[in-house]
């Protein structure tokens, strides 16, 4: 039983990683007042880029670099559309999602001719697993050994990075000048403007952060968690991340909690695949997988606490008076 739990938690770590990157990307963007529904598209484009570049150069790191560049460009495109030209942020986000879904498939087909997939990456072109010192030795110690060597050790660098992103983002948003201004822009951009700070520059900076983090999320999915790009491989994780962001009320620790919860549900769903539960019959996998969305809707309906979004979210800033 304990072993099963540890294995599930181990899977939770892996599944939560892209959610954490993407949700924190969303946090930067939305805290600055820009709705980011295009987390999914940015991740997908980044995943494709990482796999393609890693395959061609045989270097996972070059793949990551290219993934970040592509994701950042999409974020900037979002910025041009809805910060500079004050377009509708949701429409722009949807457009980016469609663009990413179409482009990754079309380019994949024409470059690699494998039905939209990229070729399998060799181990050299992937991010490898980091074993903690003594993990092998600890393996047989009951409980603690399992936690140490299964759950904590044996992940690739992204997983650890994701858990570092959380305190770092918190520090950046709540303890630095940059963070104060970024949050202010999302609450009352006029206050920021009258204080002599450029609203547009702050929002672009926030989108830049979002682009970088989505780049990590995408690269993780295709060149660390898996070893190739498959079409639509992000499979809605961008939206789950968005749900986690709302579920966590745009605050770092609760958002981390939401990501882990949603990751855990996913891990449980995988583990229960085809398992007969006594008295219930087949485990309701679909229900478990739908839980993140259901929970978010329930939250938005105001059942437990209220999710108060940044006040200026979704509103393009128009200088007036």
């Amino acid at each position: 039983m304990i072993d099963t739990l540890i294995l599930t938690l181990d899977a939770t770590m892996r599944v939560s990683t892209p959610l954490i990157f993407a949700a924190f990307a969303g946090m930067f963007s939305e805290r600055s007042g820009v709705v980011d529904i295009s987390l999914e598209g940015k991740m997908l484009a980044a995943a494709f880029t990482a796999a393609a570049v890693a395959y061609l150069t045989n270097s996972a790191w070059l793949g990551l670099g290219a993934a970040i560049m592509v994701s950042v460009s999409l974020a900037m495109l979002h910025g041009v559309a809805c910060v500079t030209f004050r377009g509708n942020q949701v429409v722009s986000g949807v457009a980016i999602n469609i663009l990413a879904a179409g482009l990754t498939m079309t380019l994949g087909l024409s470059w690699f001719k494998q039905g939209g997939q990229t070729p399998q990456l060799t181990d050299a072109a992937r991010f490898s697993i980091i074993e903690f010192p003594g993990a092998e030795m600890m393996r047989d110690v009951p409980v603690i050994g399992g936690i140490y060597s299964e759950m904590l050790s044996g992940h690739n660098i992204f997983v650890y990075l994701a858990f570092l992103v959380v305190p770092f983002s918190w520090w950046l948003l709540f303890r630095t000048r940059f963070g104060l201004r970024l949050r202010a822009v999302g609450e009352n951009p006029k206050a920021v403007d009258t204080a002599g700070i450029s609203v547009h520059r702050m929002r672009y900076a926030a989108l830049l952060c979002a682009g970088i983090l989505c780049g990590f999320a995408g690269a993780y999915i295709s060149s660390a968690q898996n070893a190739q790009f498959v079409r639509d491989m992000t499979a809605g994780q961008g939206f789950i991340a968005l749900a986690a962001l709302i579920f966590g009320k745009w605050r770092p620790l609760p958002v981390l909690g939401a990501c882990l919860l949603f990751g855990f549900l996913d891990a449980v769903a995988v583990r229960l695949q085809g398992v007969e539960i006594p008295g219930l019959g087949k485990a309701p996998i679909q229900l478990i997988e739908a839980l993140p969305y259901i929970l978010t809707v329930v939250l938005l309906a105001g059942f437990f606490g209220k999710a108060v979004a940044p006040k200026a979210i979704g509103l393009p800033y128009v200088k007036e008076r």
């Binding site: 630095t176 000048r177 202010a184 206050a191 700070i197």
Partner: peptide
């Protein structure tokens, strides 16, 4: 609110 825009240093 008062320090927004002239925070004095990188760190709040």
């Amino acid at each position: 609110n008062i320090t927004l825009g002239c925070e004095g240093s990188m760190l709040l």
